Simulated scan of single mutants.
Amino acid sequence: MVENNAILNRFFTYRILFDLIYGNDNSIYETVIKRYVSDPEDKDNGKIISEIYKFMSEKYRNEYFYQNTLLNKLLLEKHDVDTTTALRQLPIARSKADFVLINGKAVVYEIKTELDTLERLRMQLTDYYKAFDHVCVVTSENHYYQVLHILSNTPVGIYILAQGSTTSLIVKKEPTEYNTCLDHTTIFKLLRKREYENIVLEYYGKLPNTPQAFYYNECLRLFSNIPILEAYALTLKELKKRNKIMITKLDKVPYELKSLAYFSNFSESDWKKFNSFLSTRYGR
């Protein structure tokens, strides 16, 4: 059954979303509808997606389901879009952080669904602590005791995504600050050119005057000479500027699609197409 449902991992993606809102034929959407939706001709696309998501919530809670829940429960319900920034799939050393939330502090949330194994967890956590000082594992009730054993006597937090008609996020252990392993080079590699230039300019008052071939390494050298906790704080300040979105737009997005919409960087034209697609009856 799990293998049969794997197509859902390909459905809630940015490529599929943009295909659909711009009216492109998409075989994955058609296949998913045939498999999970009854009488689709009587429903608009928003209703169809809601039914697909409901199936996922009951039978196939994949990474998108967890990520979307985190965005809804933490960013939208607990925090504020205007003062908090979420990032996803952020490359850190050998790993990718599933979900990062930045407000006064930054927390990496590593997702381990009931469909995942825990084989790489220790390595991933080691990588994350090179770039961030708060880390939390979000997992299922099935994995809880194994995760608890792995994370005993560590600063890593543990959240459980409970099963049930109303998906709740249960805090078993809050993450605590651990900054001993912060690493200049790992942190620097998180940054885009404009971001590390802003940091160098703020700290030194000027940018390096060096040939372009040596510019990146010179910026890295200057960044590495900033005390690590100050470099970290300046990095969070820059990362927090990413993914800015008007809450008035996100408020109108169905719960099931809030994560996709938040991270899609929609233009005004995209928003209009998106809203039109959701309200259009399937097949028209």
Rank of each mutant, 00 (worst) to 15 (best):
34 K>I: 03
251 D>M: 09
280 T>A: 03
235 T>L: 05
168 S>G: 12
150 I>P: 00
148 L>K: 05
166 T>N: 15
37 V>Q: 02
216 Y>G: 10
189 K>N: 15
40 P>Y: 03
153 N>Q: 11
222 L>F: 06
281 R>M: 09
171 V>F: 01
22 Y>E: 07
71 L>Q: 08
150 I>H: 00
161 L>Q: 04
16 I>Y: 00
144 Y>R: 06
31 T>H: 00
229 L>E: 12
264 S>N: 05
201 L>N: 14
185 T>H: 07
98 D>Q: 07
246 M>H: 07
185 T>W: 02
83 T>R: 12
66 Y>E: 10
50 S>T: 15
34 K>Y: 00
49 I>L: 15
194 R>A: 14
232 Y>R: 01
3 E>G: 05
4 N>H: 12
208 P>M: 06
116 D>H: 00
161 L>I: 14
270 D>A: 02
183 D>G: 01
109 Y>F: 11
152 S>A: 09
210 T>M: 04
253 V>N: 03
106 A>V: 09
140 S>C: 00
104 G>S: 15
116 D>R: 04
124 Q>M: 04
19 D>K: 00
282 Y>V: 14
125 L>H: 04
214 F>L: 13
279 S>I: 13
226 I>G: 03
168 S>E: 15
26 N>Q: 00
201 L>V: 11
182 L>I: 09
33 I>H: 01
248 T>S: 10
226 I>Y: 01
214 F>V: 12
117 T>Y: 07
117 T>R: 08
177 E>A: 02
6 A>S: 14
91 P>F: 08
183 D>Y: 02
34 K>M: 03
9 N>F: 00
217 N>S: 08
62 N>Y: 06
237 K>Q: 14
191 L>S: 04
99 F>M: 11
10 R>F: 01
30 E>T: 10
204 Y>L: 05
122 R>L: 03
125 L>Q: 04
244 K>Y: 09
281 R>H: 08
54 K>F: 03
247 I>T: 14
62 N>E: 14
108 V>A: 04
144 Y>S: 04
57 S>A: 11
275 N>H: 05
79 H>D: 15
162 A>V: 15
100 V>Q: 10
202 E>A: 13
215 Y>G: 05
248 T>H: 10
261 A>D: 12
223 F>T: 13
39 D>M: 00
194 R>Y: 11
201 L>K: 12
105 K>I: 15
258 K>R: 09
247 I>R: 06
95 S>Q: 08
109 Y>V: 14
129 Y>H: 08
35 R>N: 10
126 T>Y: 09
165 S>M: 02
258 K>V: 14
263 F>Y: 13
173 K>I: 11
155 P>E: 06
113 T>M: 00
112 K>Q: 02
101 L>H: 08
20 L>W: 01
206 K>G: 02
66 Y>T: 12
39 D>L: 03
54 K>N: 12
11 F>L: 07
216 Y>H: 09
132 F>T: 11
16 I>C: 04
200 V>M: 07
129 Y>E: 08
204 Y>I: 13
110 E>S: 02
229 L>N: 12
263 F>C: 06
130 K>L: 14
67 Q>N: 14
259 S>A: 12
18 F>H: 05
223 F>Q: 06
